[in-house]
Simulated scan of single mutants.
Amino acid sequence: MEKLLDQVKAVVLQAGEALLDGYAGTARPASKRDLATAGRRLDDLVTGILRPALADLRPGARWVGDDRETTALPPGEWWAVDPIEGGVNYVHGMDQWAVTVTLVSDNVPVLTVVHQPVGNRTWTAIRGAGAFLDGTPLTVSAKTDLGASIVTTTQPRTRNRQFGDTVATLLDTVLLVRATVPSTFPLLDLAAGHVDAYWQDECDLIGVAAGVLLVTEAGGVVTDRHGQPWRPGHTDILAAAAGVHTELLEVL
């Protein structure tokens, strides 16, 4: 797996460079139409680099498409790829965007690379071998006091009332609630111990696969909101430091 990780990393960095060439911190879209047009162009650009390269590296692995993002996967290996995670940030001239590639085997993430071109930071993990940022090991927070915890989330697509109720409940319980887009970056912060938990309703595999592996390998706990180990097909997720996961699960 180490060799494969290095090969995947090289491909992801190449894709990141292609995106960085067209990135401008001064970008400001004028409409939703501008957003959609830019998003399609960026996806096509990076998918054109990643898909053939990953197929060469793992000929038997299939590609997770839109029809598989919220369902359990058939047995075997699958590439869960977000060509530009945080595309909305990219087109607004913000720096929280990345290329994410995760290999999922029999519904378990087993290898991941996340590259943030702005700042040239790369997160990697192999199942059972730890999580790393630029080669430095990552460890989740050691907190055990939920009242001192920073909890992060990403807004859902449709369950706005439920989302609002959950935020209100948490604001009475934890230190701070932060909502950001995309889902990968708060999970990266969780793996590094900067924040203590992340929950999301209406999550999809491509959006959280990388973070699930990184958080788990950094010592965190990742389940659905019923406490079952998170797997593709679960549409809600709670990832947290081990010391606050159980209590936070009860609150949610």
Rank of each mutant, 00 (worst) to 15 (best):
M1G: 13
K3N: 12
K3V: 13
D6P: 02
D6K: 12
K9Y: 08
A10V: 13
L13F: 08
Q14R: 14
Q14S: 13
A15I: 07
A18R: 06
Y23R: 03
Y23V: 04
A24Y: 15
G25L: 12
P29G: 11
P29M: 09
A30C: 06
S31K: 09
K32A: 13
D34F: 09
L35M: 15
L35R: 13
A36E: 15
T37A: 14
L42S: 10
D43I: 05
D44L: 13
T47C: 14
I49F: 04
P52I: 06
L54M: 03
D56A: 13
L57D: 06
P59H: 07
R62F: 11
G65R: 14
T71V: 13
A72I: 02
L73Q: 01
L73V: 03
W79R: 03
V81W: 08
V81S: 08
P83S: 11
P83N: 10
V88I: 12
Y90Q: 05
Y90V: 04
Y90R: 01
V91A: 10
V91H: 09
H92P: 03
G93F: 06
G93T: 08
V99A: 03
V101T: 05
T102F: 01
S105H: 14
N107V: 02
P109R: 00
P109D: 02
L111M: 15
T112D: 05
V114Y: 01
H115I: 10
P117A: 04
P117M: 07
P117D: 04
N120I: 11
R121M: 14
W123I: 08
I126T: 14
G128K: 07
G128I: 11
G130R: 09
G130P: 09
A131V: 05
F132V: 09
L133T: 13
L138P: 10
T139S: 15
S141C: 08
S141R: 09
T144I: 11
D145W: 02
L146A: 07
G147C: 12
A148M: 10
S149F: 02
I150S: 09
Q155P: 15
Q155C: 11
P156V: 03
R157I: 07
T158P: 06
R159W: 11
N160P: 13
F163Y: 09
D165R: 15
V167Q: 05
T169S: 07
T169E: 02
L176W: 11
A179F: 06
P182M: 05
P182Q: 07
P186R: 01
D189S: 15
L190W: 01
A191V: 02
H194D: 12
D196E: 05
A197R: 00
W199N: 00
D201T: 05
L205P: 04
I206L: 15
I206F: 10
V208Q: 00
A209V: 00
A210T: 00
V212F: 02
V212Q: 01
L213H: 03
T216S: 08
A218M: 14
A218H: 05
G219A: 07
G220N: 10
D224M: 00
H226P: 08
G227Y: 02
G227P: 01
P229Q: 04
P232Y: 00
G233T: 03
G233F: 00
H234E: 01
T235V: 10
T235Y: 02
I237T: 02
I237N: 00
L238H: 00
A239H: 00
A241C: 13
A242T: 15
A242D: 15
G243L: 03
G243C: 11
T246N: 15
T246F: 14
E247A: 13
L249M: 03
L249S: 00
L249H: 01
V251E: 11
